[in-house]
């Protein structure tokens, strides 16, 4: 595991920074969705982003792989700036896995094809190698036996694990999770969180937007609290759950805990 200490400064990291955001602003029309975001994430660090809905959490991680275009500031992922240059965007996306709230599996492809697609099409692995890799990845998320089924035949928890496998098969350096358990029935949340915990313990760099405080407590190196497009407070989980400083943080935590 990575070294632990209390950080109150969002720009400090636990090692070499792999993701850096400097002065990032994002507007949707007149709505100021991200306000001067400065943040950096170190290699193998797990950052959990919490906060009320509409606070810019999803927008923040969607800017990192250019699903949304930021309007001001710099975003650098593993030394590559996320800019209008298509090659840069492709390179960042190759190194960044993303898991969505609604899974977004490809319903017309089998589970195996869902996972094989990107390694074969983007990494240009031969079909056979891509399938071997996909099966290994499906074993990591503990559903190799579902490989020949279609997403529509699986439960929500299984689908989300396939979605994690699909992202992992690209062997990304960073994983972004956008509320991965919010669309799941309560009894399925654990199986997905277990996979994520294992991933974190295996040294994956992760940014996780979630409301699962147990997950934050268990594996987060840092917790970032966002509201109204700003980073309000940053700290270790202990700091957050025992001694929050800002009023907005206290209010939010009192509402959900």
């Amino acid at each position: 595991m990575t070294p632990q200490s209390v950080y109150s400064d969002a720009t400090r990291t636990t090692g070499d920074a792999i993701i850096e955001l400097v002065g990032v602003d994002k507007f949707f029309g007149h709505f100021h969705a991200l306000k001067d975001i400065n943040m950096s994430v170190g290699l193998q660090e797990v950052v959990v982003v919490i906060g009320p809905s509409g606070g810019g959490k999803s927008t923040l991680i969607r800017c990192i792989n250019r699903l949304e275009k930021h309007d001001r500031g710099r975003i650098v992922v593993d030394g590559v700036e996320v800019s209008d240059d298509l090659r840069n965007i492709q390179e960042v996306r190759r190194e960044t896995g993303m898991v969505f709230q609604q899974f977004n599996l490809f319903p017309h492809l089998t589970v195996l094809d869902n996972v094989t697609l990107a390694p074969h099409q983007v990494r240009k692995l031969p079909k056979k190698e891509a399938e071997t890799l996909a099966m290994q990845t499906l074993e990591r998320v503990k559903i190799p036996e579902q490989a020949r089924k279609y997403p529509g035949q699986l439960s929500g928890g299984q689908q989300q694990r396939v979605a994690i496998a699909r992202a992992l098969a690209m062997q990304p350096k960073v994983m972004l999770f956008d509320e991965p358990t919010s669309a799941l029935d309560p009894e399925m949340i654990k199986e997905v969180l277990d996979v994520m915990v294992e991933l974190a313990e295996g040294g994956m760099t992760m940014i996780v937007v979630t409301h699962e405080m147990s997950f934050a407590r268990a594996v987060a190196n840092r917790v970032v609290f966002m509201a109204e497009g700003e980073i309000v407070e940053v700290g270790t989980p202990e700091h957050f759950f025992t001694n929050p400083q800002e009023d907005r943080t206290k209010l939010f935590l009192s509402q959900i805990l």
Binding site: R66, L67, Q90, R94, F100, N104, F106, L117, A118, V122
Partner: peptide
């Protein structure tokens, strides 16, 4: 759904 395109983009397609 737009999520399909986003998921494809996210894996670099």
């Amino acid at each position: 759904p737009s999520g399909q395109v986003e998921a494809a983009q996210a894996v670099g397609l």
